[in-house]
């Protein structure tokens, strides 16, 4: 009996640091922000009132929030197909048995992914600037270059950030695709080649179906990350010009830590969480149904 107590005590000590931190900073905040989303808590003034669902109702009447939501959807839907396609193609190229220096290419393409979004955004601000690389390239090829930075115009700002993001994300997902591709046993391909399958057939009938779990995982991971886009917006545009690059998380940051409406910001956070969950479930249904 005593031994059992000692065993349990030891287990408890093993878990204790984690339990404390996880409870305070992991579990408690989830409930607390849900609670706050029904109040008008400011973050500065300790007094607050219950306002029922009005934060949620307000969100869907708030013009800026709706713009932010629209921009976030444009961002997610506009980047993911490209990121996924490009990184899959790149992974297939790197995985090709005719390619020497595989390690070099793997590392080289992955390198941008370890660098922070702030640094990457700063570089791209420079590339997009009024007399930056892209404007100069357009002039060189006789195209109509912008007089200002690409990020300063409501027409081009969001798409510029999207282009950057596609570039920045490709390396990361390429590595994941490569891991998936290397998980496909070689015998399958041998069998296919003995049966006389063409390269196209092999890809569509063997590689792609076997890659489906990886594909699903990558798309849902990318969706979750894209919905949370913040660093790019904060660094490059601050949501401007005139909210054309405002996104949900950036707006959440502004309402909570700039305008100090933390109750309202919590409601936004929960709306975002709901959207992400719905998306993940839909993707799960769509992509996993026929495995």
């Amino acid at each position: 009996m005593k031994r059992q107590t000692k065993y349990n005590l030891e287990t408890f000590i093993l878990l204790l640091p984690f339990l404390i931190i996880f409870m305070i900073f992991g579990i408690f905040p989830i409930g607390y922000s849900f609670f706050m989303s029904f109040t008008d808590y400011s973050g500065i003034n300790p007094h607050y009132n219950f306002v029922g669902l009005s934060n949620y109702i307000r969100a869907f009447q708030d013009e800026v929030f709706l713009i932010a939501l629209k921009n976030t959807f444009i961002f997610v839907i506009g980047t993911i197909p490209f990121t996924t396609t490009f990184s899959l193609l790149l992974a297939l190229l790197i995985n090709s048995k005719h390619l020497p220096f595989k390690g070099l290419f793997k590392a080289g393409f992955f390198l941008p992914s370890v660098i922070s979004m702030v640094v990457i955004s700063t570089i791209w601000i420079y590339l997009y600037s009024a007399n930056g690389f892209f404007n100069n390239m357009m002039k060189l090829f006789g195209m109509h270059a912008l007089d200002t930075s690409w990020l300063a115009s409501t027409k081009t700002a969001l798409i510029s950030i999207m282009i950057m993001d596609i570039w920045a994300a490709i390396g990361y997902y390429t590595i994941l695709f490569l891991a998936g591709l290397q998980g496909i046993p070689g015998e399958v391909y041998e069998a296919a080649s003995i049966d006389g399958a063409s390269k196209k057939q092999t890809f569509f009938n063997i590689t792609l179906p076997l890659l489906k779990p990886t594909l699903f995982f990558i798309i849902s991971l990318n969706t979750i990350r894209s919905f949370q886009i913040f660093a790019e917006i904060f660094t490059m545009t601050g949501g401007g010009p005139s909210n054309s690059t405002q996104t949900v998380v950036h707006y959440l940051y502004q309402t909570s830590f700039r305008q100090f409406e933390m109750g309202y910001a919590s409601a936004i956070a929960y709306i975002l969480m709901a959207i992400i969950m719905v998306f993940t479930i839909i993707q799960k249904r769509l992509l996993r149904s026929d495995i």
Binding site: Y32, S33, S266
Partner: peptide, 12 residues
Amino acid sequence: PPQTTIIPIFII
């Protein structure tokens, strides 16, 4: 999403 928990963590 970490943004859900950041406001309560800030208050804590």
